[in-house]
């Protein structure tokens, strides 16, 4: 399975993009708006397309037929699996971190 850490500085934006595509296909602008809503941080257009190119190369997303000049992207099966693994790992990390925080507070 493809490791997100291989994506370097594009790892975090890529995870947001995968999460955005988790609810269905979107084109670049819609991804950008959605990622900003999810993360609270604007996603620059250069970073967005740098991440999209890497995700596409790794087979985590695939491009659909363009509508006008807008080309939607969707998760592949590998992309959905990768997203789930990453989110599970983050959930485990958050759970442990919160438990320890509660432990130190008590």
């Amino acid at each position: 399975m493809s490791s997100m850490s291989e994506l370097g500085r594009f790892a975090e934006p890529s995870l947001y993009i995968l999460a955005s595509l988790g609810e269905g296909p979107k084109h670049g602008y819609a991804i950008m708006i959605d990622v900003e809503a999810i993360s609270g941080t604007p996603l620059g257009p250069g970073t967005l397309y740098g991440a999209l190119a890497r995700l596409e190369k790794r087979g985590l997303i695939e491009a659909l037929e363009p509508v006008d000049r807008r080309r939607p992207y969707r998760l592949t099966a590998l992309g959905a699996t990768t997203l789930k693994v990453q989110l599970d790992a983050l959930a485990g990390f958050a759970r442990i971190g919160l438990q320890r925080l509660r432990g130190s507070a008590g």
Binding site: H27, G28, M32, P45
Partner: peptide
């Protein structure tokens, strides 16, 4: 590969 869609994005935002 990406020019047209990025241009559309920049036109929208």
């Amino acid at each position: 590969r990406y020019g047209a869609e990025l241009e559309a994005l920049l036109a929208a935002r």
